[in-house]
Each structure stands twice: as C-alpha cells, then as structure tokens.
Amino acid sequence: MRVTDQSIEKTVSIVLRTGVVISGLIVLLGGIYFLVRHGREPANYHVFKAQAYAGHYIVNILRGVWSLQGRSIIQLGVLCLIATPIVRVIVSLIGLSLERDRTYVLITSIVLLILLYSLISGAAGAT
C-alpha cells in the first residue's frame, strides 16, 4: 500500500470523527441516564468538592460504569474524548513512518514524547 499525505489526512480525519462520535454517544447516554435519575435535584456547583481520585482514577470510573452510575458513564466518554487527540498523534506517526518522512517522524515523536511526559508527570498545568 502506498502512503501519501492525502491518505494520512484521510485517516487522521476518520480517527478524529470516530473519537468524537464514540465519546459523544457515551456522554449522551450517560447524560440522559443521569438526568432521568437526578434531573429534579437542585443544581448547586458553587462550592468545589475535591473528590479523592488519586491514583485510581480510571479504575474508579470503570467500577462506576459497571454499577451503572450516570456520572461514571459520562466520565468514560470524557476520557474517550481526551484520548482522541493523543490517538491522532500516534496515527499520524504511523502514517509518516510508512511514508518514510524521516524529518516528520522525528518531529511527531518529539511531540508524542512531550505529550506523554506531561500526561504522566502532570507537569503542564494549562491548555
């Protein structure tokens, strides 16, 4: 298979669309379920309540999804959304290495490394 810039663009576009549709559907389902159960309760978000997620964030979410908690289903969708741009970088890296574009394999690898470093270390504190 010949890999061109056009095919990389097409694949990246499909990856982004898939990520958006999957995460959107999960959040929609979780959201409807959440509103059916808690929609009549007062909305009060004036006070910040830090939840103890430390270290077990993903495990907690999966446990919540398993016990059908609307909030956890929403959070699963949010995680899928956050993963979308990261998967996009990985997919372009694969495409560029198939295209044998050495300069951009290097550039994309650097971006991916910085990205993973910030994700794991939690160093970059901003958007």
Binding site: G30, G31, A43, A50, I74, I82, V111
Partner: peptide, 22 residues
C-alpha cells in the same frame, strides 16, 4: 493536543465535574 497534555492534572484534582462537563 495541547489541552489533552494537561488533562491529567485537572482530572486528578477533581476539576472535571461530570454533571457540568456533560
């Protein structure tokens, strides 16, 4: 991408409230 890089900080601090984010 830039935003995703800093997501873990906000998630672990509990800034992402499902009811608001939905």
């Amino acid at each position: 991408v830039t935003a995703a890089a800093s997501a873990s900080v906000y998630l672990s601090r509990g800034y992402v409230n499902p009811a608001i984010v939905m």
